[in-house]
C-alpha cells in the first residue's frame, strides 16, 4: 500500500516535470495538433467534394465527407503525439538526469509513467483542438452524453496504448533522430484503414490488411459513437487491440528501462 502511494507520488512529480517541459517548449504540442488540422482542411476542402460523392450517401459531397473523415483525423493525432513522446523519452535517456533518478530511492517506474501520463494529456488536448476545428467547419456529431463519454474513454485507452508503445520506441532508439522516425508508420495506418475511405473500396490484399489492423476497429467504433453508424463487433476488437498494445508496450518499455540494471 505504501509502496503504491510512493509510486503514485513519484509519478505525479515526474508528470509535473514533463508538463513543465511541454509548457516551456510548446512548439511540440502545437505541431501535434497542427498536423491533423492541416490534413483535415486538406481532405475536406481539396479532396472532400469528390471523396464525399464517392461515399454514396444521401447528403453527399463535402459535408458528408467532413463527418466521415473526422474520426480518422482525430486518431491521426496520436501519430504525431507518438513521435513527440518517443523523442522526449529518447532525449531524456541521453541526459544524465535519468542516471541520477536511477541512483535515488524513488519508484523506478515513475520516470516512465510520468512520460506516459504527460504524453496522454498532451495528446488528448490536441485531440480536443482537432474536434473543435472540425466542429467549426461543420462537423455535427449526433452523440449524446453517454456516447461522448464512451468515445473519450475509448480515445483515452487508445492513447494510453500508443503512448506506452512510443515510450518503448523512444527507449529502444539509439539516438533522438531514430526516435523521431520510428513512430512514422503510425501516420500511415489511418490511410491504410477506414480513416479516409471505406475499406470496401480497396483492392483485396490491401482491404484484408485494412480490416484487420488496429486503427480500423477504433475508427469504426469512434465513428459509430459520434455519428451513429453501426459498430458491430468493432468495439470489442478495438478494446482488445488497445489492451494488447498497452500491455505489450508497457512490458517492452519496462524491460528496456531495466536492462543491465540492478532491479
Amino acid at each position: 500500500m505504501t509502496a503504491l502511494t510512493l509510486a503514485a507520488r513519484d509519478s505525479a512529480t515526474m508528470l509535473r516535470r514533463n508538463l513543465r517541459h511541454m509548457l516551456r517548449y510548446p512548439s511540440m504540442t502545437f505541431m501535434i495538433a497542427g498536423m491533423p488540422v492541416v490534413f483535415l482542411l486538406l481532405f475536406v476542402y481539396v479532396f472532400g467534394g469528390t471523396l464525399g460523392a464517392g461515399l454514396g450517401g444521401a447528403a453527399g459531397g463535402r459535408a458528408e465527407y467532413l463527418d466521415y473523415v473526422t474520426p480518422g483525423i482525430i486518431l491521426m493525432t496520436v501519430a504525431g503525439a507518438a513521435t513527440a513522446t518517443a523523442v522526449s523519452v529518447a532525449m531524456d535517456m541521453t541526459e544524465g538526469i535519468v542516471a541520477r533518478f536511477r541512483t535515488m530511492a524513488i519508484s523506478r517506474a515513475s520516470v516512465l509513467t510520468g512520460h506516459v501520463a504527460g504524453g496522454m494529456i498532451q495528446t488528448l488536448l490536441s485531440m480536443a483542438v482537432v474536434v473543435g476545428v472540425a466542429v467549426s467547419l461543420g462537423f455535427r456529431p449526433t452523440a449524446g452524453p453517454v456516447e461522448w463519454l464512451a468515445a473519450i474513454g475509448l480515445l483515452a485507452l487508445f492513447v494510453l496504448a500508443i503512448t506506452w508503445l512510443s515510450v518503448a520506441l523512444g527507449l529502444v532508439a539509439k539516438s533522438v533522430e531514430t526516435a523521431s522516425n520510428t513512430p512514422m508508420p503510425l501516420l500511415l495506418l489511418p490511410f491504410l484503414g477506414s480513416g479516409f475511405v471505406p475499406t470496401a473500396s480497396m483492392p483485396e490484399a490491401l482491404r484484408w490488411f485494412a480490416e484487420y489492423q488496429p486503427f480500423t476497429p477504433v475508427i469504426e467504433t469512434l465513428r459509430g459513437l459520434l455519428l451513429g453508424t453501426p459498430i458491430g463487433d468493432s468495439a470489442v476488437v478495438a478494446i482488445a487491440w488497445c489492451m494488447g498494445i498497452a500491455l505489450a508496450g508497457y512490458l517492452w518499455a519496462k524491460r528496456l528501462f531495466d536492462r543491465d540494471l540492478v532491479r
Binding site: 516535470r17 513543465r20 517541459h21 516551456r24 541526459e95 544524465g96 538526469i97 542516471a99 541520477r100 541512483t103
Partner: peptide, 12 residues
C-alpha cells in the same frame, strides 16, 4: 551521485 556528465534537467 554526481556523475561525469551533468545530471541536471536543462529544460527546468
Amino acid at each position: 551521485v554526481t556523475g561525469q556528465y551533468s545530471a541536471v534537467d536543462r529544460f527546468l
